[in-house]
């Protein structure tokens, strides 16, 4: 099982009497792009929140095998610990640090990989300066990958919508993740921006990142993903390759309703 990056088994989440997730299993292998789809309210974002530690799942296991060969159980950990273990995410509604510059946003991502603290900051020791410079260099490299190198000194709030989405990805990349979780990365993008995003995600996969994404844009999902999981009412109703999913009657029913005439 060396090939698996993320293994989620039997994940359940209750909010009081409401069961948002029921016994969900999911796997992401190394170098794969996996999509999680489903109608609105199916529990996709809840799933992300459970996996990344924002919620503490009621039942189940989330196991991460990092590229560095470490295995860790993630459920119950705080979000910052989850990120430290090697899993980073973006948000459905953009959550950038608006009044910081583009470069600083990415530099925040380097936080959990660096160590300087109060004394280091005040005394600015050579080691501290080196670390700071390394943060700047690495952040700049990442911004070049996502194509925002020209905007480094701009404020995050001044970026166009598509660029803000890419900056979120850059920020997540800066944490050196083994697995990248993208929550509706193409939401609200125009066709041109979506095309650029597809190129970016494919480039990231080629660089060795594994990606799990939630998306509503079916064209994007079908062209990008190696495998697809379909959810409805908190349950997994199907899984398989894009071709299998497209012809799966259960999936079609979930999306279009019971009476399928046309």
């Amino acid at each position: 099982m060396n090939n698996t990056i993320l293994k989620v088994s039997g994940l359940s989440m209750h909010f009081g009497g409401i069961q948002a997730l029921k016994q969900l299993d999911l796997e992401v292998n190394r170098g794969e792009i996996v999509a999680l789809i489903g109608p609105n309210g199916a529990g996709k974002t809840t799933f992300f929140n459970c996996v990344t530690g924002i919620y503490n799942p009621t039942e189940g296991d989330v196991i991460l095998h990092t590229l560095q060969g470490k295995t860790s159980r993630l459920n119950g950990l705080k979000p910052n610990k989850v990120t430290e273990k090697g899993m980073a995410r973006t948000f459905q509604n953009i959550r950038l640090f608006q009044s910081m510059t583009v470069l600083e946003n990415v530099m925040i991502g380097r936080h959990c990989r660096t160590h300087s603290f109060i004394l280091g900051a005040i005394l600015r020791t050579p080691g501290n300066r080196q670390e700071e410079q390394a943060i700047i260099e690495r952040s700049h490299e990442i911004l070049e990958i996502v194509g925002l190198a020209d905007e480094v000194d701009n404020y995050a709030r001044n970026l166009s919508y598509g660029a803000q989405r890419r900056l979120e990805i850059a920020r997540a990349l800066a944490t050196d993740p083994s697995l990248l979780l993208l929550d509706e990365p193409a939401a609200g993008m125009n066709p041109q921006e979506t095309q650029e995003l597809v190129q970016l995600i494919l480039r990231l996969r080629d660089q060795g990142y594994s990606i799990l994404l939630i998306e509503h844009d079916m064209k994007l999902v079908m062209t990008l993903s190696n495998r697809i999981y379909v959810m409805d009412y908190g349950e997994k109703i199907a899984q398989g390759t894009p071709e299998e999913i497209q012809s799966n009657p259960v999936v079609i029913k979930a999306y279009l309703g019971e009476d399928l005439d046309a």
Binding site: T52, K78, F91, L96, S99, H111, T114, S116, A172, T175
Partner: peptide, 20 residues
């Protein structure tokens, strides 16, 4: 590094935690 973390915390607590 600490100062940036403070400002990130001010801007968005959830995103700040999610960034480690």
């Amino acid at each position: 590094r600490l100062g940036r973390a403070w400002i990130a915390l001010r801007e968005d607590e959830i995103a700040c935690q999610a960034m480690g």
